[in-house]
């Protein structure tokens, strides 16, 4: 069961995070934390013509929270806001065990489904996505 949680792909994102860093302004920035375990994630993104043109994350925390953020940056860059919102909903559904991940849509993110067997870790995997969701609220009505 441990192998489903700590899949190679997750550990790889943890050790070699993609999209870690910062953006120059103009950007939207949002930060979130998991006070119980101390995971912290900040997401910075730029939206141009209704698309996420660039996204970075920073923060600290466990392998799952950091790998999830790393995967997020790869997955959302270039997507329209609508596509991103759909993806977020699909990730939540997957983490809650409400739906099986569709590898076509999810790609590597599907690996995060392993947390379903570890209820206390679901929050770690979802943190970055919550931060992204909140960040997108700032977009509403502005650049879209």
């Amino acid at each position: 069961m441990l192998e489903t949680l700590y899949q190679e792909i997750i550990l790889d994102h943890y050790r070699h995070p993609r999209g870690r860093g910062h953006l120059e302004p103009p950007k939207i920035e949002h930060e979130g934390a998991n006070p119980l375990c101390g995971d912290e994630i900040t997401i910075e993104l730029r939206v141009e013509d209704g698309r996420v043109s660039a996204v970075r994350f920073s923060g600290q925390g466990c392998s799952i929270s950091q790998a999830s953020a790393s995967m997020l940056t790869e997955a959302v860059e270039g997507k329209t806001l609508e596509e991103v919102r759909q993806l977020i909903a699909q990730v939540y559904a997957m983490l809650k065990g409400e739906s099986e991940p569709d590898p076509e849509v999810m790609g590597e993110i599907a690996a995060l489904a392993g947390v379903r067997n570890f209820p206390v870790r679901v929050k770690c995997a979802s943190l970055a996505w919550h931060v992204l969701e909140d960040a997108l609220r700032q977009v509403n009505g502005s650049s879209q």
Partner: peptide
């Protein structure tokens, strides 16, 4: 530099209960 949360999860998987956090 393994995060304590990850340590606790792996130990839990071997049926050992410890705490992680601040």
């Amino acid at each position: 530099d393994i995060h304590p949360h990850d340590i606790a999860t792996v130990l839990d998987n071997f049926d050992i209960a410890i705490r992680s956090g601040h």
